[in-house]
């Protein structure tokens, strides 16, 4: 089943003025249901514009968007249905909190969906558990919380809508390493438990390599590449040329291979590197003996 499909998607800002700018140029792609896709690209490459098309916040200048086979703009009046199907967590989402209590804020999305009170409270509880919010936090004002906790409340607010497709725009920007790790593992868990499709925008190649199965590279308003982590990070030189990079550990292994060591060049995470190094050392030790 195809979860997200775009057909020659194109978006032009301020058309027919001196400020005209093509932000998304002819994106055609298909994302399978249940896939975890990392989205990488420069600031201003058009990736934010692209993801805002996937839940109907932006209307394509031309081209089409399909979510689970349905044409998004076939009937503009039904656009809200797509916003509930595709949950979008913006960058620094804690700035959107507004309710008196954490509980009410998380309930904002589900309430807009018109669900029953029982269903809403059930979803709020599940979403809060997912992001690791303690029950005593629920009655506090979101403005009393720490930055990291606010971020969780905001993410829970989107998770509570139980979207089929979840898009996160740099969900860990500005958090400390521990906070990053927690948020990522919670997103991974959500992905596994609900088998939803996840798109993760990140500037950290390490995070993308560790969590995503596929990578989508946007460069200069164009879809540069869309493939598995192996396929995309194998194009190290092209990625470096456009100012992006590959995970640090991949660089080390590329260099090791260049210097004549017999290592695999598809190493993208520290765990993979550890296994590969142990294999190499084991082999080397065997030779010596």
């Amino acid at each position: 089943m195809i979860a997200v499909k775009t057909e020659k998607l194109r978006h032009v800002y301020s058309p027919q003025t001196p400020f005209e700018k093509v932000a998304v140029d002819d994106f055609s792609l298909e994302i399978e249901e249940g896939e975890f896709v990392g989205v990488i690209g420069h600031t201003g490459s058009g990736k934010s514009t692209f993801i805002q098309h996937l839940n109907g916040l932006m209307k394509p200048t031309s081209g089409k968007v399909f979510i689970h086979g349905r044409d998004m703009w076939a009937d503009p009046k039904k656009i809200r249905e797509f916003r509930f199907m595709v949950g979008l967590v913006f960058q620094y989402p804690e700035y959107q909190l507004f309710e008196e209590t954490v509980e009410k804020d998380i309930a904002f999305g589900p309430t807009n969906m018109g669900l029953s009170a029982a269903e809403i409270s059930d979803r709020v509880r599940t979403a809060a558990e997912f992001v690791g919010l303690a029950p005593e936090v629920m009655q506090k004002s979101p403005f009393e919380l720490s930055g990291g906790q606010k971020r969780r409340v905001a993410i829970a607010g989107v998770l509570a809508m139980q979207p089929k497709v979840l898009i996160l725009d740099e969900p860990t920007a500005g958090l400390d390493p521990k906070g990053r790790e927690q948020i990522f593992s919670q997103i991974s868990e959500y992905h596994k438990k609900t088998s939803s499709t996840v798109l993760l925008v990140s500037h950290s190649m390490e995070d993308v390599a560790r969590h995503a199965k596929k990578v989508l590279v946007v460069n200069d308003s164009k879809l540069f590449a869309f493939g598995t982590v192996n396929e995309v990070f194998a194009r190290t030189e092209e990625l470096t040329a456009m100012g992006l990079s590959v995970p640090q550990v991949t660089k080390i292994f590329t260099e090791l291979k260049r210097r004549g060591f017999d290592v695999a060049d598809n190493i993208f995470t520290v765990e993979q590197a550890k296994t590969e190094l142990l294999r190499l050392l084991g082999k080397a030790g065997g030779n010596n003996a």
């Binding site: 916003r83 913006f90 700035y95 959107q96 999305g109 807009n112 989107v158 809508m161």
Partner: peptide
Amino acid sequence: EETDKIMSAQKARGAD
């Protein structure tokens, strides 16, 4: 710019 951003975020949560 900030208003635009917040509006988008709330619309993404189904605000009508």
